[in-house]
Amino acid sequence: MINQEFVDKFRHYHKYGTWWDDLNPLTKFVVCFMVALTPIYALTWWYGLGVCVIVSIVAMTSKFRKNFFSLAVKVFLIITILLVVLRQIGHRATSITPLINIFGWQWYVETLFNSLNRASFIVGFSVTMILFFTTTPMRDITYQLEQMGVSHEASYVMLSSMQNIIDLKATAVTIFDSQKARGIETTGNAIKRAKAFFPTLAPLMIGAMQGTEEKTIALDARAFSVKRNHSFLRKLRPVQGYEWAMMAVAVIFNIAMIFVSFKILKQLPVTRFF
């Protein structure tokens, strides 16, 4: 990239190049949150599964689809499998129709569908919110929040927290290995292992806390506390007319789903049976 191109890229709104990624973070949040709430009302396995499929189709259009799928598939499988298996342990009042017997472990049809319905609520909510979080970088979220009047201190807290997690994770492993090399026992019973926990955490936390002193000075030298409007090197496109329409549709859909869930969905034969 030549110098002029590099400079010019800051003269326009930042773009990712796909329709979903280029939506304003506010639009993405409202749409995702409104849709994420609907599996909670519906509480029906096929509706939750449908939401997951639609969300996955949207995610396929995103540049960040790899992040989405690696996380969403994990959450989907872990919660669904755990809930289905654990609900078959022990006897519940709803367990009537035998499904299968695995070496004396009886599974029931009603319990299976009850657990799938419950998993759809958790998974439907989680997968939809994962779409928002994996396709919206944190700096875009904090940028939009600042545009809406949230203080730059709040942005600092969010962004700095994320960076600190990465930095301290690496430091924790280094300290842990150093303490191990000094002879602190990290294997054995729970008490021995608990004893290894403190010599790792204490230097990490105290070192990080003392580092805040230098950070205070460094940020003050960069006019962090100045009370005036801040400028931004990188700008995002403001919410467009059609994005407001998308948000309105999402809100109406959410409200409609409350009615549909309680008045219609529960009466459908396919839902009632399961």
Binding site: E153, Y156, V157, S160, S161, Q163, N164, I165, D167, L168, K169, A172, L201, L204, M205, A208, M209, G211, T212, E213, K215, T216, L219, D220, S225
Partner: peptide
């Protein structure tokens, strides 16, 4: 300000 700068450390320690 000191408390403000301590917040991200607290969050990171919760994770660590």
């Amino acid at each position: 300000k000191q408390a403000l700068f301590l917040i991200p450390i607290g969050v990171a320690v919760n994770f660590i």
